[in-house]
Amino acid sequence: MIKWHERPVARLCLRLSGAVALWRAWLFVSALYVEVHAHPPRPASLGELGACAAVVTLVLVGNALLFVGPALFRQVEIPRRWHGTSVAEGLQTAAL
C-alpha cells in the first residue's frame, strides 16, 4: 500500500504549500518593513511582535515543506536499545 505522502499529488501539494507559506512570510515581512520605516522610532507593539513570530514560523514551515517535502513523514528506525524503555525508567536509573 502506498502511503499518502508518497503519491505524486501529495508531493506536489506539500511543495506548493511550502511555497505558499514562504510567499505569506514575504507579505508579512514587506508589511512590517513599511510599518517600521513609516513611523518615528518607538517600541514594538504586541501586534508587530506577533507578526515577527508569524514570519519565523512561516519561514521554517515553508522551507521544510518546500525543500524536504514528503521526506518529513518518512518513518525512522529506532535503535534497539531504545525499544521497551520509557522515560520514567530512565529517570529512575538516573536518580540512583
Rank of each mutant, 00 (worst) to 15 (best):
V56R: 11
L49Q: 13
G50P: 00
R80I: 05
V61L: 13
A53K: 12
P8S: 08
G69I: 00
V29W: 04
F73Y: 09
L46N: 04
I2Q: 15
E6G: 12
H5F: 15
A94Y: 14
T57Q: 14
F67C: 10
K3S: 04
R24A: 04
N63E: 14
T57R: 15
W26V: 02
V34Y: 10
A25R: 02
G50H: 12
G50W: 11
L14F: 06
L96T: 13
V76G: 03
R11D: 12
A25E: 01
G50E: 06
C13R: 14
H5Y: 15
C52Y: 02
V9F: 03
A44I: 10
H83G: 00
L72N: 11
G90A: 06
L58D: 03
G18M: 03
A54Y: 05
V29S: 03
A44P: 00
L66A: 07
L27G: 01
Q92Y: 06
W82F: 09
E77T: 12
M1C: 10
A38C: 08
R11E: 15
H83T: 11
A51M: 14
E6R: 15
G18Y: 01
E89H: 07
L32D: 02
E35S: 08
L91V: 10
S86N: 06
N63W: 10
M1W: 11
L46P: 00
G84D: 00
R81Q: 13
C13M: 12
S17L: 09
P40N: 09
G18T: 05
C13A: 14
P40V: 06
L27N: 08
L96N: 12
L65V: 06
G90W: 08
V55S: 04
A64R: 12
V36C: 00
A64W: 09
V61A: 07
A44R: 15
L65Q: 09
V34I: 03
A88Q: 11
F73C: 00
Q75I: 01
S86Y: 04
A64H: 08
L96Y: 13
T57Y: 10
V55I: 15
P43I: 04
F73L: 05
M1L: 07
I2A: 15
A44S: 13
A53R: 13
L49C: 07
T57W: 14
V68E: 11
A31G: 07
P70V: 02
F67E: 14
H37N: 08
L58E: 02
Q75E: 10
Q92C: 00
V29L: 13
L22Y: 02
F28R: 08
L91C: 07
V68L: 12
L27T: 01
F73P: 00
F73N: 09
G84N: 04
H5V: 10
A64D: 09
V20D: 01
